[in-house]
């Protein structure tokens, strides 16, 4: 977890650009205020919501979140740079998170990761050119009894063998979870697709809702 620094001379946010957070997203963020004593405490929920809305958290989104929470933009950057779950660049529609901790390694997780890299043609922390998949590795996913395991968006795939990878990637429903979802940390459903950057989220949203 290293520090993230930016060049002060480089303009990262265009002050004239239209806002990236819709009013519905802002309202959803504000709905968390009664839960906490400070507005800053809403930062993590806010980042979850914004990331769900646009697939990542852009510099401009950080500035706007800071505005909603009445904190300094630097505070948002300070927090966001600490956590591995938040992305400041575009993600693929589906993020594959491969566990690399000890149980999965002992049970052959590295081979699964290699197979994924070959099939997708990308390295760790990269996104396929068609924007469909991103590949990341993370420490223990707490699925050690089903090692080796990986997440595709929210769905935990258990006991994955390298031979299963092709079938897994071809399955259009490989990110569907078997339990009813709570939309507490999701972006509001009625948000326009236009602000969703390259249009990644609405698809994910539809798939999740389906």
């Amino acid at each position: 977890m290293s520090w993230k620094t930016i060049d002060r001379n480089q303009q990262v946010v265009d002050p004239k650009a239209p806002p990236v957070l819709t009013e519905a997203v802002r309202e959803k963020i504000r709905s968390f205020f009664p839960r906490y004593e400070t507005k800053r405490a809403v930062l993590l929920p806010a980042l979850h919501i914004v990331q769900d809305a646009s697939g990542h958290v852009s510099w401009q989104a950080m500035v706007e979140i800071a505005g909603v929470l009445e904190i300094a933009p630097s505070d948002v950057i300070d927090t966001i740079s600490f956590y591995t779950h938040f992305w400041t660049e575009h993600k693929g529609k589906r993020v594959i998170t491969v566990c690399r901790s000890i149980s999965c390694e002992v049970m052959g997780g590295a081979a699964v990761l290699e197979e994924l890299k070959t099939r997708l043609g990308i390295e760790e922390h990269q996104t396929t050119p068609d924007g469909k998949y991103s590949l990341v590795t993370e420490e223990c996913l707490a699925g050690c009894d089903h090692a080796p395991c990986l997440l595709i968006n929210e769905k935990l795939h258990k006991r994955v063998k390298p031979a299963d990878v092709a079938k897994l990637l071809a399955d259009p429903e490989n990110d569907r979870i078997p339990v009813p979802r709570s939309d507490l940390f999701d972006a509001p459903k009625d948000h326009g697709a236009a602000e969703a950057g390259v249009g990644t989220t609405s698809d994910v949203q539809e798939m999740r809702e389906a």
């Binding site: 977890m1 906490y36 400070t38 800053r40 405490a41 809403v42 930062l43 993590l44 980042l47 979850h48 929470l69 904190i71 505070d75 300070d78 927090t79 740079s81 600490f82 956590y83 591995t84 779950h85 938040f86 993370e138 420490e139």
Partner: peptide, 20 residues
């Protein structure tokens, strides 16, 4: 949001407050 150290009780508290 994916940080092992947030399982430490004061790390957890800081994280709940919206900080690192």
């Amino acid at each position: 949001a994916g940080a092992y150290v947030c399982g430490e009780e004061t790390g957890l508290i800081e994280s709940l407050e919206g900080k690192r």
